[in-house]
């Protein structure tokens, strides 16, 4: 496979994942601002921060009005992380690597771009927001379904999975990073209404509120939430899960190509670190430090993969 194609597949799925994550952040922010928060502006502000677009947002707006944040995150083409930008980039990459995709996958991506371009042509009104967020989720689900059902499990598939979980791990880690202080036992007012709102926001941002409750009942403690997001490899957006899938697909590449690359050492080291930790050792070391290190390592693995598999010349 061409190195460029591997890169195109990887970025196509990073951007698809990003579009879905951004939509999920908006969804969580919308719900919390609507139902629980006394201070919606600060809620929206943390949504913008988590999306990693604080600077560009602040350059454009001077307050955190729901309508502005939603517009910026969903349909602003000057924001490279907005849903419409991310879908557009995913589709451009898909066009570039079209020969590597099945018709079903290409059509799912192309239709998603055509559909959302139409839907997001006009500013989104509050009443339409839930339906539009649903549409974004459905489009992504279609692409994933087409992948699952029609693609060969070869290096092409591996690079798409690698892109997807790297982006996803980065997203989950950034959510924890922005809200980490609300998860610290020292800072917590355990059981207070305020904390519950914060924890629920976190869980909703990764669509985990139901699965968390399902596994933990009503026992919502900061340690349990942190443990779930970081170490529970049953949960498909946890750092541990992402790391496992990454290792898996990288090892397929090593087997396919008959050679281990430097990125394999990096992922092994990350896997070991996650395996050796418990939530209390993480808290002992410092949650913030742990997360910052994880984000840095995750990025480093991404860069190493780009180099090892010659995405660019």
């Amino acid at each position: 496979m061409l190195g460029k194609t591997a890169g195109g597949l990887y970025w196509m799925f990073r951007f698809l994942e990003r579009s879905e994550n951004t939509a999920r952040l908006v969804e969580a922010g919308f719900r919390i601002a609507l139902t629980r928060s006394k201070d919606p502006a600060s809620e929206w502000k943390s949504v913008v921060t988590t999306a990693g677009v604080r600077n560009s947002y602040d350059a454009k707006y001077d307050s955190y009005l729901a309508a502005n944040v939603v517009d910026f995150l969903l349909r602003d083409t000057t924001n490279p992380s907005s849903v419409i930008s991310a879908i557009g980039q995913a589709r451009t990459n898909a066009r570039m690597v079209r020969t590597a995709l099945t018709t079903e996958v290409w059509e799912a991506v192309n239709e998603s771009w055509m559909g959302l371009k139409e839907t997001l042509k006009k500013p989104v009104r509050e009443t339409e927001l839930p339906a539009i967020l649903g549409e974004i989720r459905r489009h992504n689900a279609l692409v994933r379904g087409a992948m699952q059902g029609t693609m060969l499990r070869n290096d092409i598939y591996d690079f798409t999975r690698i892109g997807m979980v790297l982006e996803r791990a980065d997203n989950t880690a950034r959510i924890i990073d922005v809200k980490y202080y609300t998860l610290l036992p020292t800072a917590s007012f355990v059981g207070s209404a305020l904390d519950n709102v914060q924890w629920e926001t976190i869980l909703r941002s990764v669509s985990a509120h139901r699965s968390f409750r399902w596994l933990n009942g009503d026992e919502m403690t900061p340690a349990a939430v942190a443990e779930f997001l970081i170490l529970d490899s049953r949960f498909p957006r946890s750092l541990s899960f992402c790391s496992r899938i990454l290792e898996e697909n990288l090892s397929y590449l090593a087997k396919d190509y008959g050679i281990r690359m430097p990125c394999h050492d990096l992922i092994d080291a990350q896997r070991d670190r996650l395996r050796q930790q418990t939530i209390s050792t993480i808290f002992d070391e410092g949650l913030h430090e742990f997360i910052t290190t994880f984000i840095r390592d995750n990025n480093a693995i991404g860069r190493q993969i780009e180099e090892d598999y010659r995405f660019i010349g």
Binding site: M1, L2, G3, L253, Y257, Y309, R310, G313
Partner: peptide
Amino acid sequence: HIAMRTTEG
């Protein structure tokens, strides 16, 4: 020769 950059060289 003309060669293309692939994931394996």
